[in-house]
Amino acid sequence: MKFGIVVNEGPYTHQASDTAYNFAKAALAGGHDISRVFFYHDGVNVGTRLSIPPQDDRQIQEQWTALAKEHDLDLVICIAAAQRRGLLDENEATRQGKDANNIADGFRISGLGQLIEMGIQADRTVTFGD
């Protein structure tokens, strides 16, 4: 089975990104494919590399980055939602004249079309949110 995953809520405030991560891990362990993970609404905040949770807490972004590396996952952050919330990759920071970027390894910024395309290509689209 090919799964598409949507993450609609931000890390730490909401458990959605944790549940999505655990779902993705379990699906991959069960021999399924993840065609893409799409981060929308506050879910885009999962992709900042500047998050510093307390030492005894999980590092959500690093968990995703490691999973993406291990399984060659496509982690996509919605550009419109990201720009509103101050998430920029290097290209976008340059283009918008901003002095910094904050996208973590393993994530890429792209448009909402990627969400629709994922829905078309995946056998099942699963949304994690409120």
């Binding site: 609404h41 419109a80 909402l112 829905g119 078309i120």
Partner: peptide
């Protein structure tokens, strides 16, 4: 949520679904 949902619908319209 409502506003960003509408943004998805408008972009999605280009995919002829």
């Amino acid at each position: 949520y409502a506003q960003e949902s509408l943004e998805v619908v408008l972009i999605g319209a280009a995919f002829d679904q």
